[in-house]
Amino acid sequence: MSVALVIGRRLLAIAVIMIVVSFLVFAILFATPGSPEQLLLGAGPTTPEALAAVRAKYHLDEPLFTQYLYWLGDAVRLDFGESIQTSQPVVSVLGERLPITLFLAGYATVIALLVGIPSGLLAGLRNGTAGDRLVTFVTTLGISAPSFAIGILLLYVFGITLGWFPIFGAGEGFADRLLHLTLPAVALSATVLAIIARQTRAAALTVESQDYMTFARARGLPRRLLFGRYALRNSSLPVVTSSGLVLASFLTGAVLVEQVFAIPGLGSLTVAAVTNKDVPVVQAVALLAALVVLVLNLLADLAYTVLDPRVRKVVFPQ
């Protein structure tokens, strides 16, 4: 089977899953109590005429399936409608927040990988040493502390007391944004960093006890080769899988950190949209999240085939 065919099939599956996801999310929102037209008119007393006009405009009196088809018809033409909360096009609402969230998620992922993997490898290969204990202790702390608590602590120490970093907002321009998003990225990556370090450590422990490692050592291979080619590559499969998911979870799961650092990202948008039953926004965010997870999974699977010849032979038999 050719590589193109395998990828093509996967892409088709992604499209089908996206439609299923969009319908499920739509149906769930439809079933939740609450009326968006009331939100559209503010929470004060209103008039029956205004309520009726809004219900008609947003097709709110139609049955679930008809409403969904209205949405789907527009969505396949890439028209995702207008936010109920702000009356702005959903695409521009997302367009404003997505770059910030991507930056933050990317930044946090880089921190998690750059710190998590080396320290995990070190701990695994130097099992039982003081360095291993230190990594284990710090990662336990990282897993246990909720990200918003770490965020507020970082704000106090580095924002207020030391005054090194700004306290809120996302910043303008690359350098300013990097400065603004450093504390949030650290807070966001803490838990995941700890998990990655633990996973890498476990994988490295397993690898470390394999015969080929003992043999490589016996052959007197330099440490660089030992760590880089033998240990890192063989420990990397579980790490690659989790990295894809990590990035995906950062994209939509940074709500608490966004809240603490007042960052206008996708997470806070999602929460506000769900709370206010802002269907067009929720739909678009859900689809985006589904797309990101599915594509990253695909990429992770493809990375397997590059990293592990055994997997390659199963997926692409010659």
Partner: peptide
């Protein structure tokens, strides 16, 4: 309950 549900 969520605000929307309450208001609804």
């Amino acid at each position: 309950v969520q605000y929307q549900e309450f208001l609804g």
